[in-house]
Amino acid sequence: MSETNGDIKKMMIILSKATLENVYAAFILANGARSEGIQAEVFFTFFGLEAIHKKKLEHLHVATVGNPAMHIPTMLGGLPGMEAIATTMMKHEMEKIDMPDVHEFLDILTASGVKLWACQLAMEMFHYKKEDLYDDVDGVLTVGAFYNRGKGEGTHMLFI
């Protein structure tokens, strides 16, 4: 506290999910940090890896089951095509407020100096290779290596 006077210096964000609403939450928080002059790094683990997987990142969906805020009955949310409909609607709304798509958002984040890291264990589990990932991913890291990057005062970690 003494050195930074309580100021946030760095946000270390861990993204473990690939539903659109979670991916956007992580990206907006990272981007918002950079625009306040705060450093930001994102660690993609488990399903979160899909947000940086070249072939998958354009096809992420909103969760319609187990999400009471969707205001549709869970039974209906599970019907075929419901996720696609909800996703199309959400993307339409996001375009209206000038929100970039996932790929463009990654471009904005890397241009803004956000570091993107893939979790080594999850990469092995899903049999992904570095070439499968968005080109500007900074590397593949262990949890320990990610923690080490968060050293110093004023670092905060967020799990999404």
Binding site: R34, S35, G37, I108, A111, S112, G113
Partner: peptide
Amino acid sequence: VDIKEFYELFPQGPLKT
């Protein structure tokens, strides 16, 4: 200006600064 250069010109939060 592109985003990268914008950050280089105004490193501590470009739009804000």
